[in-house]
Computed example of a mutant assay.
Amino acid sequence: MENFELTILGCGSAMPTTRHYPSAQVLNHRDRFFMIDCGEGAQLQYRRNKMKFTRLQHLFISHLHGDHCFGLIGLISTLGILGRTGELIIHAHADAERVFKPHLDYFCHELPFNVRFNAISPSKNEIIYEDKALRVSTLPLKHRIPTCGFLFEEKEKERHLIGEMIKFYNIPVKEIADIKQGADFITPEGIIIPNNRLTRAADPSSRYAYCSDTIYQNKLISLIEGVDLLYHESTFADDNKARAKETFHSTAIQAATIAQKAQVGKLMLGHFSARYMDDSIFLQEAREIFPDTILANESLKIKF
């Protein structure tokens, strides 16, 4: 199966602690790295997890609160020191370029590569990145400032050839690509050989939904229905549900309710408030509603 792996670099919230770094993740798809949020210390965690800086091509910033983007300038500066030459693309709210461009001009004015900002609309559900194998869409969230999550979807994969059948029917190389896509083969005599005789089913495609800072909202359910893994913030436990509502955050129970209603494969909780010294309370509360729940933690890796 193709490489599709998530690494957690940080899962804390705004108040710094010695237990967690601020929000940052890296999704590895076919050895191309996509960073999701970039809190302070993201580049240190990136190096600690022995990931190659040259593989990083795109950054997705959910919103412009510091615990989700204060690591950006340091990371870009380091990429310049390492001699990177390929373009780096930052997908973020339109204000991101206005906020970070002066810092880049001052601290990173001699970069050997181009930094390009791709302005996104957090209030819309739309495709913001696409290549031949992967699609990324925004997930509108409701927070104190414009905020969105991201849905990463592998495109449908090619079917597997049955080697002995390809050889038996002496199928020309020029026909192989179409057969992998599901086409039948027509022999020189006009006989149709059905595709299911020549191939096996493709590997299932993976889907990952990242939902950062947000209040509970039912409209998210249809957008993430059936994803393999849902990361949903759970800043507070149920003892602080009033505070969660006041600050436009979610509780572990609310995150689990979203997961249950969306029938996701697995739920990962994160963005833990510094007021809790033991994260297990989030897990206990969420599993009462959605048993297949885990906690995010620094350096945790999940393979799809």
Rank of each mutant, 00 (worst) to 15 (best):
C69G: 00
G182L: 06
F236W: 07
T251W: 01
I179H: 06
H249T: 01
P146S: 11
Q57T: 15
A42G: 00
I253R: 14
G80W: 15
L56C: 02
H63R: 01
I186E: 13
H63Q: 10
N240W: 06
S77T: 06
C38H: 01
Y208P: 12
A296V: 09
N240P: 00
I171D: 11
D203Q: 14
L75D: 07
S222L: 13
A262R: 04
K142L: 13
Y46S: 03
E156G: 09
I61N: 00
T17M: 05
P172D: 13
F113E: 08
E156I: 15
E288A: 04
Q254S: 05
P194C: 04
D213V: 12
S205F: 09
V173H: 11
F34E: 07
L295D: 00
Y169V: 04
S205Q: 08
T251M: 07
N114Y: 08
I294H: 03
L229H: 12
L139C: 07
F152S: 01
N196M: 08
V136P: 02
G83P: 01
R144W: 13
D238I: 05
Q57N: 12
T147A: 08
F248W: 12
E175S: 13
Y276S: 11
I127D: 02
S205I: 03
K124Q: 12
K167L: 11
D228C: 10
A177T: 14
L56E: 06
S212F: 01
P102Q: 07
G12C: 12
D95R: 04
A242F: 00
F272E: 01
D67T: 06
E285R: 03
H143W: 10
T247M: 12
L300H: 07
F248M: 14
E110D: 15
H68A: 04
E2Q: 11
C108N: 14
P146R: 15
D105C: 00
P102C: 08
T257L: 07
E164V: 15
P112C: 14
M268T: 06
S121P: 05
K124L: 13
I186R: 14
M15D: 15
A92E: 03
A119M: 04
A237W: 04
Y21M: 11
S137Y: 00
K266W: 10
A256R: 05
G80V: 15
A96T: 01
D213H: 05
E5I: 09
D278V: 01
R84E: 09
Q181T: 12
R30K: 11
P204I: 14
G163V: 02
N28Q: 09
N49E: 15
K101R: 13
A286C: 04
V26E: 04
E288R: 13
V264G: 09
C211N: 02
D279I: 03
Q263R: 15
I294P: 10
H65C: 09
D203R: 14
G10Y: 09
E110G: 10
P122R: 04
E156P: 02
L134M: 09
N195D: 13
T138A: 05
A42V: 09
P140M: 08
S205R: 12
N3V: 07
E2L: 03
N297S: 12
F304N: 04
V115L: 06
E126M: 07
R275W: 13
T17Y: 02
